[in-house]
């Protein structure tokens, strides 16, 4: 629920990092916190257990610049990934403007990824939000690990695309982030599908972290333009 505050000349937007437990959501925020100039970000708040697993959420406010005299302030949240924290995970989605799904590339985590993606769709639907219509970006994290699944397998499992019914949108749209690929394309079956932009990441070293953040933030601001 983006808020335009004319009094303080700010545009406030909420971005939620979603995904399975231990997938790297908090690591994404920690990297952003470490790299953004202190005057452009607030404190990183973590409501975590004693073993540093996210209990409720992590929160980091960042300013990404000024447009038309308005400061663009993004509130970044992570959710707890573990299955049994669904009640608190759902609360964090309230008023969300953009979603990043942080998938764990390890083959062994494929089922956990799919379960989390399904849970994201379900929780969004319970608020009446349509994930296929809001800014949504996928990050495949841990690409450096030897047991990382091939990208096409991850795409097929987690980002197979949703059907594009609107005839006006049934035309190829190049993926600005992956050369030679399309975000909207026609399948050999004749069906038109749209996929979310995706990025490969190694959050622990920062690879792909800012690409992901930039992509989702830009999509959020473009919904206001």
């Amino acid at each position: 629920m983006s808020m335009i505050n004319y009094a303080s000349r700010e545009i406030n937007c909420k971005i939620v990092y979603y995904g399975p437990g231990l997938g790297g959501k908090t690591t994404n925020l920690e990297h952003i916190y470490g790299k953004v100039a202190p005057d452009s970000r607030g404190k990183l708040i973590s409501l975590a257990t004693e073993t540093e697993r996210t209990l409720f959420f992590d929160f980091l406010p960042v300013d990404l610049g000024t447009i038309r005299g308005f400061k663009t302030r993004f509130h970044l949240y992570t959710v707890p990934g573990q299955v049994y924290y669904n009640a608190s995970r759902k609360l964090i989605l309230k008023g969300v403007d953009g979603v990043v799904f942080v998938g764990d590339s390890q083959v062994e985590r494929m089922e956990a990824n799919q379960e989390s993606m399904q849970n994201l769709y379900d929780n969004m639907a319970e608020y009446g939000y349509d994930l296929t219509k809001i800014p949504f970006v996928v990050q495949y994290n841990k690409r450096d690990l030897p047991n990382a699944a091939p990208l096409p397998d991850l795409q097929a499992a987690l980002n197979p695309g949703w059907e594009v019914m609107d005839a006006a949108r049934q035309r190829s749209m190049p993926n600005p982030y992956q050369q030679g690929e399309n975000l909207v394309e026609q399948l050999p079956t004749g069906e038109w599908v749209e996929r979310a932009p995706y990025f490969e990441g190694v959050a622990i070293s920062g690879d792909g972290v800012f690409d992901t953040l930039r992509a989702v933030s830009k999509l959020v601001l473009k919904t206001l333009a």
Partner: peptide, 16 residues
């Protein structure tokens, strides 16, 4: 189904 959470704005008059 709503597309997403709606935006809302807060003017200087509201603030006052």
């Amino acid at each position: 189904m709503a597309v997403s959470a709606s935006s809302w704005s807060f003017t200087e008059d509201d603030f006052a």
